[in-house]
Nucleic acid binder design. Sequence first.
DNA 1: GATGAATGAGGATTCATTCAT
DNA 2: GATGAATGAATCCTCATTCAT
Lengths: 236, 236, 236, 236
Amino acid sequence: MARNNGDTNASAPVVNPTRKSVPEMPRTRRGRRTRDALVAAARELFEERGFRDTRISDIAERSQTSYGTFYHYFDTKEAVLQALFTEVAGEIFTASRMSPDVPDDPVARIEAANRQYFAAAARNAWLIAVIDETALRDDHVRQLKLRLRDLFLRRNEAGIRRLQEQGVIDQDLDAAIASAALGGMVEHFTQMWFVHGVTFDHEEAIRTLNVLWAQAIGLKVPPRIGDASLAGAAVD
Amino acid sequence: MARNNGDTNASAPVVNPTRKSVPEMPRTRRGRRTRDALVAAARELFEERGFRDTRISDIAERSQTSYGTFYHYFDTKEAVLQALFTEVAGEIFTASRMSPDVPDDPVARIEAANRQYFAAAARNAWLIAVIDETALRDDHVRQLKLRLRDLFLRRNEAGIRRLQEQGVIDQDLDAAIASAALGGMVEHFTQMWFVHGVTFDHEEAIRTLNVLWAQAIGLKVPPRIGDASLAGAAVD
Amino acid sequence: MARNNGDTNASAPVVNPTRKSVPEMPRTRRGRRTRDALVAAARELFEERGFRDTRISDIAERSQTSYGTFYHYFDTKEAVLQALFTEVAGEIFTASRMSPDVPDDPVARIEAANRQYFAAAARNAWLIAVIDETALRDDHVRQLKLRLRDLFLRRNEAGIRRLQEQGVIDQDLDAAIASAALGGMVEHFTQMWFVHGVTFDHEEAIRTLNVLWAQAIGLKVPPRIGDASLAGAAVD
Amino acid sequence: MARNNGDTNASAPVVNPTRKSVPEMPRTRRGRRTRDALVAAARELFEERGFRDTRISDIAERSQTSYGTFYHYFDTKEAVLQALFTEVAGEIFTASRMSPDVPDDPVARIEAANRQYFAAAARNAWLIAVIDETALRDDHVRQLKLRLRDLFLRRNEAGIRRLQEQGVIDQDLDAAIASAALGGMVEHFTQMWFVHGVTFDHEEAIRTLNVLWAQAIGLKVPPRIGDASLAGAAVD
DNA sequence: GATGAATGAGGATTCATTCAT
DNA sequence: GATGAATGAATCCTCATTCAT
């Protein structure tokens, strides 16, 4: 059995040691508003032009502040990206938490999860792309990304394992690998869609992903009855 | 039925039309050697530090040539990346062309394809990452990338359709979407592995991918016989 | 006879005339404490990193106050330096005032003066270095420095002249130049020692300076009796 | 006997390891000319406004080159300063090497050395001031400075020791300390003169320094005959 | 009195690209 | 073909100082 669920070969973060401290969080109300404006502007710009092609001056300008103000709240551009990352990670994870009223049927649960992920991805795909891009060169960001990914995969993995224990699916399947592969399938698919514009019919796409996922791990999917076009709920 | 196999919302290529001509291919032997050295150096450096963080001076230095020489062979940094891209695209595509001696069994064919892709990805994952990264911001590169992807997906799609026509798998499955999703699964999995260092047991991973892929489209996979450890061949 | 005791080619002080008034001296006890904290912090920091490399924010931080508070007490960074200068100038000058119980023997008086200067320099060498550094570029500081120097040199000069009048040393020696040169010798020596870390045996150093100074102006120094090692008291 | 001729408490130089190499020396004639122009401009400007207040743009402008050209030859501003330092150190040391036709009389030799130092200092005092200023904060520059100083002091020390061996002066004097003190006397005196404008009659000053130096170590100086005013040769 | 948010001019450094040899 | 010198716009980051609370 494969058992090394994602070793990350990352080294220690290299942070400037002598740095005049930047207020973790602004103390006054005015400060909070300004900081929020900076983060919002940064997000827009990162999505529009990417991390590297966004200038501090752009962020200052769009947030209606000044150069210096940016540095009053963030040490570097990387710092805002991290702030954003934290924000988004929270959102996606919370959003994709299974709501309690989902029926116990495994196929239905897979469908619910995929739909939720789709919606969250629609909102955040560009930022995720930016984070992926940055993770490639910035070890700290890579760490964050991998950690978040782990959260998701562990949940999937646990789900698969439960089904194995219930004897519903094959015991031989490596839950960790399957979780990574199928999670990656959906992530990749949504990125191609929302970032690279490779779109299909929305309802058909989700339905297909559901089927692929369910069958992949060995679940039986009931044949389609009636017409698909009755169902579809648009994302954006 | 979903029928819009990946519209790419790319705009016109932004290429400078009036450009002092650059020798498409050097005529003399010396010229060819110099050009090759430049390309090789560029590849190394792109993989090491990424496209944007590689300087022309780095390429000149590592290839033992000079600033001017680089510009003798390439108009811009982008131009080398494209040259590299073409090289790699050819390699991967050829490598993954089904060898004639693969048995006609669909599951066996999937396995063969996955193994071949794995090997090619192991060699080129970093360059692919660089191309992905660049594609995000450079429309020309994005075009190239999507076109190559299409080649792969069409092949998959044709395969799936053939199985549907043979009545081996469900007719209802959208072949285009399934092809995109499952192709993405494998691509994403190898990138995480070779670029981000998220590794598993090699043989177990491939086997799991094979099973997932085959079952996802509705093929029956024969249960494992004997022991996994008889097979494994490490990649790196 | 040389008679131009140190012309200083300084221009007019460049001080902003219209300035919102700053309390010359705080009236309340709390105010006094805050101001003292600022000055103390400034001194530490100037010594640690030099004048130019010390930020107002550093001073505010170390003195446990804020940006605004600094500007409540001082117009500019230069202003604190001057406050410090005054403080130190007073200390050194007072410290080096000949105590009345020094015997009338010229050699003994030279020794007493050197010992006292050494002690004062040990405490203040870094600040003096900072002032010297600043004097090079800031005319106002240069004025202060030269004026203080004059005080010292005049005293030396008067002493030398007295000895000449008493017929103890040669009449031909230019008292002003000798005073400047020998004063400079001791100052330079202590700066090299306390700032640049060029140290020697403490007692031997002082003794040697005494001998050099006394003999330089033509005094006879009685030969050493006994052993040096009985005396030495380390400085740092 | 004091025996620790100048411990320098300096740590290792901290140099950026990954730096695209800068041509140690230009390969073409044009390159050499450009580099020379940069160094000359830098020297002028450092003397005029000091190291920190000189902008790279100033250097580029005055040397009739461009921003980028500066960085083609030097990594940082510090680098030019070091180049200058090396240049000047060589000049001063060579200039002050005793010419062979100086009579063997110790007093005459002291006089010759002082005159030569005075002339070299007149040319280089400002640059020395700049170096001193920088040495205070830049360990690498401090190292250079202390090393050069050592060269001078060792020569003095050897001279003093020779006189002691010849029985001309007192054996008890610590040669190392005396050398440091008297060398410092002359250095300090010339800096006050040429940098801070504290001037005296030139001839009288040199003569006085000679007498102080010679008598300090215990040499007898023949009384002046005739009139000083017949001799003087102004420096600036 | 005290606080800390806001400002923006200033300066070092990078690097793709051109050009003269 | 090959070389390396020259260019300068673009960008990050700093920090003294002001001001509203």
